[in-house]
């Protein structure tokens, strides 16, 4: 296999919850709690999980928009640190969820797309105009509209502009944080196709974060499932969807409404995700897990190999992987 372009090791991001007059930290919110994974060049890694499981914090921490509490990130073999984010931001870019807040409202879209080129000086000033036109055309926005402002564009077009901005300095890895979640299905399809075309042309790697399991499956080669700040399962997309090795993945998949599904046959979860300020003991999933045993409340299961290219964090993943 090729060298991974991004290597994440035991990444952790905790937020102190401050209260009181003197702002002492009275609790810790473990938004991302010891996450490790790799992304290889040209590959699409999907991350799924429910709201609050730490997906977006992970994205922001990887981009060094928030400094991690501990753990390490290696980009292209080079360790990233607060003083050394240049390489990272040259080669890794991010697209956000909300098309209405992710573009600065008072800059023209031409200016928005040009700014990364100016900052990194990847092209001389004289070429910027043609670069911007090329980028806009590539994402399907008319280059003649470069002088217009974001509010003159629809949600889908804005998302295209956000992608153009991210592509401006020709990164090798793109983080897509719920990049199509705010869009209507018809427009969502357009953007998904665009992403695939871009990947084919530029050999981009994607880290595709979403709560929508269908979209993640469609786009990803490999999928990570997160629950309460931790990765609970990892595997090749098709295999993981076909046969989850973790009860949470199982429940998640079966909760997704499908056109052919029969709801009565589904696995149902009890209760709701606990607060990340007070995660349950042992396996954080045990209060809701249909398979939970006494050991689950005591011992935290490790994320261990459970099949070819697969890892799962459950005391009973062997059972799930074996039979059924």
């Amino acid at each position: 296999m090729t060298e991974p372009i991004l290597r994440v090791h035991e990444l952790t991001k905790h937020f102190p919850i401050r209260r009181g007059l003197f702002g002492r930290a009275s609790a810790t919110l473990r938004a991302v709690d010891g996450v490790s994974f790799d992304v290889h060049p040209g590959e699409t890694v999907g991350i799924v999980g429910e709201s609050g499981c730490g997906k977006s914090t992970l994205a922001r921490t990887l981009m060094w928009l928030d400094e991690p509490t501990s753990g390490s990130v290696t980009f292209d073999g080079q360790p990233v640190s607060s003083g050394a984010t240049d390489l990272l931001r040259r080669q890794m870019q991010i697209v956000f969820q909300d098309p209405y807040t992710s573009l600065p409202p008072r800059m023209t879209i031409g200016d928005i797309v040009a700014d990364p080129i100016r900052i990194h000086g990847t092209h001389p000033e004289s070429e910027i105009r043609s670069q911007v036109n090329r980028l806009l055309t590539e994402v399907g926005v008319s280059a003649q509209r470069a002088g217009q402002y974001p509010f003159q564009f629809s949600g889908g077009q804005r998302q295209r502009i956000g992608i153009a901005r991210a592509l401006a300095i020709e990164p090798r890895l793109l983080i897509l944080d719920e990049a199509v979640s705010a869009l209507d299905v018809s427009v969502q399809g357009q953007i998904l196709n665009l992403l695939q075309d871009l990947q084919d042309q530029h050999g981009l790697a994607y880290l595709f974060i979403s709560h929508d399991l269908g979209v993640v499956r469609y786009l990803s080669d490999r999928v990570l499932v997160m629950y309460l700040g931790k990765i609970v399962e990892e595997g090749p997309a098709e295999a993981l969807y076909a046969k989850p090795h973790h009860p949470y993945t199982q429940a998640l998949l079966s909760a997704v409404p499908t056109l052919r599904g029969r709801r009565s046959e589904r696995v149902r979860l009890r209760g709701e995700p606990p607060k990340p300020t007070s995660p349950p003991s042992g396996c954080a999933f045990h209060p809701r897990c249909p398979m939970a045993q006494p050991i689950c409340a005591k011992e935290t299961p490790l994320l261990l190999p459970s099949g070819p290219g697969r890892r799962s964090a459950c005391h009973f993943s062997g059972q799930l992987a074996g039979n059924g």
């Binding site: 240049d86 040259r90 870019q93 991010i94 956000f96 573009l103 600065p104 901005r165 991210a166």
Partner: peptide, 16 residues
């Protein structure tokens, strides 16, 4: 807001 985050992500300095 995300656009300010995006600006940091493209490598803009704090002043910028």
């Amino acid at each position: 807001k995300d656009y300010a985050r995006a600006a940091t992500a493209i490598g803009a300095s704090r002043m910028r």
